[in-house]
Amino acid sequence: MSDKPEISIAGRRFIAALLLICAGLLVAEFIIHRHAYFALEATPLFFALFGFVAFCIVVGGGVLLRKLVMRAPDYFDGDDDA
């Protein structure tokens, strides 16, 4: 894991804007009706939660996969390529 990075002023502004938009999307959830095909999809905030959790699973899955398939950069270099 990398250390906590220094966040630039531009980065802080980006994060502030993102938080604002996300808050707006949460509010919109209770104003706009989402047409749902599946029962689970109709759960309030389904897509917001799914997006956040899925992203974390993708990254977490990658970290686990690294243990299985990561090798040195020159792993194949000694092979006689036929």
């Binding site: 993102l18 996300c22 959830e29 905030l45 917001a48 939660l49 997006g51 956040f52 992203f55």
Partner: peptide, 9 residues
């Protein structure tokens, strides 16, 4: 929501 909350993650 899906995309921006993923960005948030």
């Amino acid at each position: 929501q899906l995309l921006l909350f993923a960005v948030l993650a």
